[in-house]
Computed example of a mutant assay.
Amino acid sequence: MIQHQVNVAARYNPETLERVLRVVRHRGFQVCSINMETTSDAQNINIELTVASPRPVELLFSQLKKLVDVAHVAIRQNTTTSQQIRA
């Protein structure tokens, strides 16, 4: 599976994190790690997700940027965690 690091900047609302995680799950991605921090003004949040899936990360990117509270989505890196060996 390929891992992708996704950064999401959004407005701070109680339901924002739940919406982001629901989109990740519905698009067939598995959350490997998550980190969320509020900004200094406590009105915005930064969410860093490491997700894994054989599916293209563009599917997730296009859905996350459509969420109402999301201001910015960025994909930072791709890494392979397991390799398929064909006989």
Rank of each mutant, 00 (worst) to 15 (best):
M1W: 05
Q3M: 11
H4Q: 10
H4E: 03
Q5W: 04
V6G: 02
N7T: 14
A9I: 14
A9Q: 15
A9V: 14
A10W: 01
A10G: 02
A10V: 00
A10Q: 03
Y12G: 01
Y12C: 05
N13T: 12
N13G: 06
N13I: 01
T16A: 08
T16R: 01
L17A: 09
L17V: 11
E18K: 10
E18G: 12
R19S: 06
V20H: 00
V20M: 03
L21A: 08
L21P: 03
L21D: 09
L21V: 09
R22C: 06
R25C: 06
H26A: 13
H26P: 00
G28C: 07
G28D: 12
Q30K: 12
Q30G: 07
C32T: 13
S33F: 01
S33V: 01
S33N: 09
I34S: 10
I34A: 12
I34R: 07
N35I: 03
M36P: 00
T39Y: 08
S40K: 13
D41E: 10
D41Q: 10
A42G: 02
Q43C: 10
Q43M: 13
Q43P: 02
N44S: 15
E48A: 09
E48W: 00
L49H: 06
T50K: 07
T50D: 07
V51L: 07
V51A: 02
R55S: 11
P56S: 15
P56N: 12
E58G: 06
L59E: 13
L60P: 06
L60R: 03
F61N: 07
F61H: 15
F61R: 05
S62E: 14
Q63A: 10
Q63F: 00
Q63H: 14
Q63G: 04
L64V: 08
V68I: 15
V68D: 15
D69A: 08
D69P: 01
D69T: 07
V70I: 14
V70Q: 07
V70P: 01
A71K: 14
A71N: 11
H72S: 15
V73L: 05
A74E: 13
I75D: 00
I75P: 00
R76I: 06
R76W: 06
Q77F: 05
T79E: 03
T80K: 11
T80W: 01
S82W: 04
Q83Y: 13
Q84N: 08
I85F: 11
R86L: 13
A87K: 14
